[in-house]
Computed example of a mutant assay.
Amino acid sequence: MRKKLTFLFLLLLSSVVFLPLLIMMSSSFMGTSEIIKHYGAVLIGTGGSVQFSLIPEFPTLKAYLELLFDSPGFYVMFWNSCRQVFGILFGECLVSIPAAWAFGRFEFPGRKALFTLYMVLMIMPFQVTMVSNYLVLDKLAMMDTHWAIIMPGIFSTFPVFIMTKFFRSIPRSFIEAAKIDGAGEISIFLKIGLPLGLPGILSAMILGFLEYWNAMEQPLAFLKTKTLWPMSLYLPNITTEQLSVAFTASIVMMAPALMLFLWGQSYLEQGIEASGLKE
């Protein structure tokens, strides 16, 4: 009986989480007039009450066709997102992995203080560092370019925090055995550190993708030219006459993040577990 009650309670909680997703998916197959009929009281203030519907009365693919075949601006923003997000992730690999290896495997003066500084910077919200980032980017003539989004992301401290935990968990006996066999530091890093630390690297990259794929504040603050905007800023520019396209764009935008999350769920769990370990 207790297990059944627990199951029902968890099912109720999960339904609260998945209900908005189901509504968004079903609405993407509705026409604009049907969406207004059901949700106009909330979306455009038509008055009355909301009428939830998970099954479209007149299913249509018009919104998908309009978005995918008649919305060139959507593709421009899609490729902007790809360029910015993958540029950040590539840069994070070049910067964060060696930094995390150094924090995880070497003892040097000021290591704990520097790592503490990393953690302090990690918990600072974007609003705190926005002005300083703006001044630096303006000085480097990177404002209103893709680099205005990529450069601050490359030097994010969060990937270093996650990866350091994994590199530190590598048994020291592996390192000592490799040194006895004559392996140098670079060889140890490439042949032992990277393979054994791969779950941490993938965890940090997945979390980074999810964060920057949905970023809105950074593009709004650093990009003035709309042709440089990422896909996350496409939805706020859709008019009320294209409500069905808005739901469809939400589904299309969510799909890559959802597939990546499902693929890397085990790595994310390992990353969350490692981030909770004490020094």
Rank of each mutant, 00 (worst) to 15 (best):
L19H: 04
I23Y: 02
M24A: 15
S26Y: 02
I35S: 03
I35L: 07
K37N: 12
G40F: 02
A41W: 04
G45H: 06
G48P: 08
V50I: 13
F58C: 04
T60W: 09
E66H: 13
D70A: 15
D70I: 04
F86Y: 14
I88N: 10
F90M: 14
C93L: 15
V95P: 10
S96I: 00
F108Q: 11
K112E: 14
Y118L: 15
I123Y: 14
I123D: 10
Q127V: 05
V131P: 06
N133R: 12
Y134V: 05
V136W: 03
M143E: 04
P152G: 07
G153H: 06
F155E: 04
S156R: 08
K165E: 07
P171T: 05
A177Y: 02
A178D: 10
K179C: 06
G184A: 07
F189K: 00
K191T: 04
G200C: 03
L210T: 12
E211S: 14
Y212T: 08
W213Y: 08
Q218E: 12
A221D: 02
T225L: 05
T225M: 04
S232Q: 07
L233F: 10
Y234G: 00
P236Y: 10
I238W: 07
Q242N: 15
T248A: 13
A249C: 12
S250N: 10
M254C: 12
P256E: 02
P256I: 07
P256N: 03
F261W: 09
W263M: 14
G264R: 01
S275E: 09
